[in-house]
């Protein structure tokens, strides 16, 4: 997680808000639950304590934004029309895809905004966020 935070903080002109407090996160979890929307996963809440919302090069990560609907995890999820909201939580997006957490499968997924087709599946948050922000991956599978 620390490596991810450092990588994100080094992105040039990356905009982020003040870290989210525990109270803010609890309130967001309550709002999501009341509205039958999936909960924020544990490792994402840990990230919010250090980096709360990211906007970088046309890619966005949600967080807690008490001032506006913009990039606020509850407001954005309430607004976006995604089926199976009780199990899927949108965490961010780029021009074409959403980054979601799938509670049923307990994994992070990149899904196409229009077709909802799963493009990529990740077992951990770091890899999912690196994919969303197009941070080059050294991984090889040949």
């Amino acid at each position: 997680m620390q490596e991810l935070i450092q990588t994100l903080q080094n992105l040039p002109l990356m905009l982020t808000a003040k870290p989210a407090s525990t109270e803010q996160i609890i309130r967001a979890q309550q709002d999501l639950k009341i509205n039958n929307i999936a909960a924020i996963p544990q490792d994402f809440t840990e990230l919010l304590h250090q980096i709360n919302t990211i906007e970088y090069d046309g890619c966005y990560l949600f967080g807690i934004n008490p001032r506006s609907y913009y990039l606020d995890i509850f407001a954005e999820n309430e607004m976006i029309d995604l089926p199976n909201k009780e199990n899927l939580l949108i965490l961010g997006y780029d021009e074409f895809d959403y980054l979601i957490y799938n509670h049923t499968k307990e994994c992070y997924q990149i899904i196409d905004k229009d077709s909802i087709e799963v493009i990529q599946t990740f077992s951990n948050l770091t890899k999912a966020i690196k994919y969303l922000f197009k941070i080059e991956d050294d991984e090889q599978y040949f």
Binding site: D94, E95, F96, D97, D112, V118, I119, Q120, T121, K130, Y131, K134, I135, E136, D137, E139, Q140, Y141
Partner: peptide, 17 residues
Amino acid sequence: KFLIKTEFHGLSHYPSK
């Protein structure tokens, strides 16, 4: 669509297996 996305965002990651 995948090719349009790749042209737009580049080759930062491999496609899913």
